[in-house]
């Protein structure tokens, strides 16, 4: 039964991903991504990782997709892209490479052996309660957990720096006369 669910969900995930890549309309691509993310959340649920499934829906299918759609709306990017593609040959190459990679991974999957017994992982999940996730995050993965906060801080500071261009301070140094560059935009 679970194999049946897996196949259905896998087909959904792959279809959504293909729509995301192939669709020429940004809104269609975003909706394809929603299908992928929701199907992935359902896959988590079938694996007894209920909390992860819920987080996946709330964060990815919810918050991040809303952001995507907002940006598409604000940039008025809903019209299909019709402009000439200067590197058109890349499509075929990418399709070929993707197919080769998918085939290779399929072959690899046939001979794959679970490095850790599945029962061990299932027991560690404790029926997919948040407790198991929280405990792992704050014990085994406490360093990455804290490091991610630095990453987010860099992202916030960096985007503010880029949006609100800082003004150069006047300098009392004698050799600090500005050099002329003809290519400075705006400023």
């Amino acid at each position: 039964m679970s194999a049946f669910f897996f196949v259905v969900l896998a087909v959904l995930i792959i279809t959504g991903a293909l729509v995301t890549v192939i669709a020429s309309n940004a809104v269609h691509a975003a909706l394809g991504l929603v299908a992928t993310l929701v199907a992935l959340a359902m896959t988590y649920v079938t694996l007894d990782a209920h909390f992860l499934g819920a987080v996946q829906v709330i964060v990815y299918a919810g918050a991040i997709m809303v952001l995507f759609l907002f940006v598409i709306m604000l940039l008025d990017a809903t019209r299909p892209v019709t402009a000439h593609n200067p590197v058109g040959f890349v499509n075929e190459l990418a399709a070929l490479g993707g197919a080769a990679l998918a085939g290779a991974l399929g072959l690899i999957a046939l001979g794959w052996r679970d490095p850790r017994p599945l029962a061990e992982g299932a027991a560690a999940l404790r029926n997919g309660t948040p407790g198991a996730v929280g405990e792992t995050l704050l014990t085994r993965f406490v360093l990455p957990f804290e490091a991610v906060s630095v990453l987010l801080l860099v992202a916030v500071v960096g985007s503010i720096v880029l949006v609100k261009r800082p003004v150069s301070q006047p300098s009392a140094v004698p050799e600090a006369q500005p050099i002329e560059s003809g290519e400075r935009a705006g400023a």
Partner: peptide, 9 residues
């Protein structure tokens, strides 16, 4: 300062 990037950011 020469390239007008004299900010602590």
């Amino acid at each position: 300062p020469r390239v007008r990037m004299n900010f602590p950011e």
